[in-house]
Design a binder for these strands. Sequence first.
DNA 1: CTTAGGCTCTCACGCCACGTGAGGGTCAAC
DNA 2: GTTGACCCTCACGTGGCGTGAGAGCCTAAG
Lengths: 255, 255
Amino acid sequence: MYTVKRVAELAGVSVRALHHYDAISLLRPAHTGTNGYRYYDRENLLRLQQILIHRELGIPLAEIADILDDPGFDRLEALMKQRERIAGETQRLSGMLRTIDRTIAELKGDRAMKDADLYTGIVDPKKQAEYERWLVDTYGPDMADRIAQSKAVMASQPEGAMQQQMAELEPIERGLAEAMQRGIAADDPVNDALIEAHRAWVGKMWDKPCPPQAYAGLADMYLAHPDFAARYEAIAPGFTIWLTEAMKSWAARQG
Amino acid sequence: MYTVKRVAELAGVSVRALHHYDAISLLRPAHTGTNGYRYYDRENLLRLQQILIHRELGIPLAEIADILDDPGFDRLEALMKQRERIAGETQRLSGMLRTIDRTIAELKGDRAMKDADLYTGIVDPKKQAEYERWLVDTYGPDMADRIAQSKAVMASQPEGAMQQQMAELEPIERGLAEAMQRGIAADDPVNDALIEAHRAWVGKMWDKPCPPQAYAGLADMYLAHPDFAARYEAIAPGFTIWLTEAMKSWAARQG
DNA sequence: CTTAGGCTCTCACGCCACGTGAGGGTCAAC
DNA sequence: GTTGACCCTCACGTGGCGTGAGAGCCTAAG
């Protein structure tokens, strides 16, 4: 038997919150003394844990009550689901961390970068402006942004991180190449698992999810830049076209 | 100049929220028409981005206003603080994951948990995320041309030709990577021979010579697409930046 | 020129998940 | 039997908007 304060301390919520949960019948104490005191038991503690996990995920209290009181509610199953959602959340946050890191790197390296630009850049400001216009025309706006970010992120990567990323990509590409060589059509949904793994990898490199449209755009990108196309082609003849078709077919099916 | 609705769509917030931010002087539109309409500019968008980042971290709006309006506002410092908060969040969430795992174990009857352990990591609320805020497009015009050309080149290549091309590229890249590892500066003209070989190779893939400007643009292309860059980074850490700088330096010297 | 339909504005009240007292009982220990 | 920590029940306050209501404005089609 636990008193309100005890439960509040254990769970890290306020006493008032427990009162509130009682008032809205979300969490009734196991017993209530004749003095009106609330006494909770271990079962209550478990339910409170469920409540807090759901609350953390932004679910309104009324809805939580519905979920938990549903006779078909399976604690184990729910925990598994929440586990996944939270894992997704942490991924999102670590993406934010990397974004911040590279922004910091950019800010810190501001001066160094400017110096480097003096060396490598096109010195004539007129030419510089012209060049930038051409860049934007050719590759679209916010290109400059992405370049700066990418530079910073490269610099801030610990040694070996990229090799690790490539190591993750390799089996995916090999699997796809094998699929092609076995004669599977590019638009066969049987490829979806690998294609999605590929897309996930791209998303990881970009630090943000790669929506189907952008993914299809990426396929065009591969095609438009022969030196990259060549790398795919080196894996297997015809692989570039097959892969880009598979990518676009998958993207199209995501409607 | 953007209307409320436009901004709302871009940023993924409600029009009402923008009204609210205006009302509490957190985000005033750049101009207000005689009709009372709010018109936002690019600067407003940037500030809104800052606001949303802070809001996501659970900072109350009034405080956000203080932070952003503080004349001594130091981006670097603010970023560091944000980094810490997010790092703390991820730590907490991974604690939560472990808590869930242990609870699962307990429910399965594997072992019992201490009361307090039921809640480690679950405390402290946050909001749900907004998805797909920053959509990736940036695929410029006359893309179709290049894709068609690239496809044609690919189709016209006999089997194995691409592997041959890659075989040609490989020593060039290795040579450049070695130069970098020997500490040669990216803008050292000593690299010119290899860089020109590289450019020639690109030109061959392209089926037409690659003018210096396009070559420099290609370097930016590598940088802007991290999944491409990863391939270079896998050759040697830091190679992406070094190579792209060498490319641009060479291009700049061609006047 | 008119009309329709889509945006925009300003009140103003509503809502959720509590926070924050006020005013008053209860309990365990010294 | 007093002290001080703990408990209770109202009841109003707050933050960050949501959700109409009622009315003006703007563009494009007829």
